[in-house]
Nucleic acid binder design. Structure first.
Length: 366
DNA sequence: AAACCGTGGCA
DNA sequence: TTGCCAAGGTT
């Protein structure tokens, strides 16, 4: 641990009964653990492939949202070798709608690496896992603890909240991460590190919730510094984040009979590698006239019909307003360079991010 | 190291 | 309705 973290621990109120916390936590987990598709039955070792797949999908994404995607992936690619042999395009199509698309690229790259460099077997150490694409400090610890029973404590958003309340951590996030990491490790007992981590996650998800925590049901209720002070809901402390600026743009819905004109976005950056309809840049300080000037040159299109209304979408760091223009062209019209026609009937199978699904739905009145 | 990177649920 | 939040990683 760092010396600064050690110094901060001395400032924390650590209740005398803290030695029993790991046992209280595991007892509670044995009675109240959630049943999740990627989670092994009590007492059984989890499948590293399922643990890894679920951890990647769960990065900044809720359990409820992940469920169907996890089942779809598992049915199509039952092990890491199968996923490593899949095409990136197939993986992106299956991932469409889940967001943070660099995760899908890294997922595929990781499966390829495990297949090629590790014979299809996941490394069984935190350090080995950490070297794989898409696996950062948190995920390496989570897989190590849950799949390989290694004594380490991953700290996700749930655990940050639980621990910051348990010890009434006054330092705001993200500065408090090292301190919270050290305090979280103190909740590991002599055995079952993976269950200890999952116990804290379940506790944070079902009892120690962001608002109106159900402290009366918490196994650590009379051992929680924030609860003793009565201000548990004010933890964790957080630095306020600045709001993103509204950006505007135009999307162009070009049909050729029952087909739609699309293209593929650049590999990196926002919605990297995903399919989109042609559109203007997305900029603050851009009006409809400027956006319309960026319409693609399509043979036979002399004027655009503007759909009434706007499509709105909120990304992590900015909101977006899209104006929609439509045009229809004759059969056999060539797609402009870098673009292609796809049947509207098969759009569901395309790697279309949700913002594009919204734009297309608005343009096509569907 | 701060910014970038999606989306849906929920109060 | 608006803002917060979710099993973070990469650059």
């Amino acid at each position: 641990m760092t010396s600064s973290a050690a110094a901060k621990i001395k400032q924390q109120a650590v209740p005398a009964e803290s030695a029993s916390r790991p046992a209280l936590l595991l007892d509670w987990y044995d009675r109240h653990r959630r049943r999740l598709p990627w989670r092994a039955a009590a007492g059984e070792r989890a499948d590293p492939y399922r643990v890894w797949l679920s951890e990647i999908m769960l990065q900044q994404t809720g359990v409820k949202t992940v469920g169907p995607y996890f089942e779809k992936f598992l049915a199509r690619w039952p092990d890491v070798a199968a996923l490593g042999r899949a095409s990136l395009d197939d993986v992106l199509r299956m991932w469409a709608g889940l967001g943070y698309y660099s995760r899908a690229r890294n997922l595929h790259a990781c499966a390829v690496a495990v297949l090629r460099d590790h014979g299809g077997i996941f490394p069984d150490t935190e350090e080995g896992l950490r070297r794989l694409p898409g696996i950062g400090p948190y995920t390496a610890k989570a897989i190590a603890a849950i799949a390989f029973d290694i004594r380490t404590m991953p700290v996700d958003g749930n655990i940050e909240r639980v621990v910051s309340r348990l010890y009434a951590v006054e330092e705001p996030l993200p500065q408090a991460k090292p301190l919270i990491g050290v305090l979280a490790e103190m909740l590991l007992g002599p055995s079952r590190p993976g269950d200890s981590a999952q116990a804290l996650m379940d506790l944070g998800s079902s009892i120690c919730t962001p608002k109106k925590p159900a402290c009366a049901l918490c196994p650590l209720d009379d051992d929680c510094a924030a609860r003793l002070r009565g201000d548990q809901e004010t933890f964790p402390r957080k630095a306020p984040k600045k709001a993103g600026t509204l950006r505007r743009g135009a999307a162009f819905i070009v049909t050729r009979g029952d087909e739609l004109l699309v293209r593929t976005r650049a590999e990196k950056g926002l919605l990297g590698g995903m399919t989109e309809v042609p559109g203007s840049a997305w900029l603050a300080e851009q009006d409809d006239k400027m956006a319309l000037k960026q319409a693609p040159q399509v043979n036979g299109v002399t004027r655009w019909h503007r759909k009434t209304g706007v499509v709105t979408h909120v990304f992590t760091h900015f909101p977006l307003e899209l104006v929609i223009y439509i045009a229809d062209v004759a059969a056999r019209t060539r797609a402009p360079a870098g673009m292609r026609w796809v049947p509207i009937a098969t759009l569901a199978d395309e790697a279309l991010p949700n913002v594009m699904r919204k734009a297309i739905a608005h343009g096509l009145d569907i």
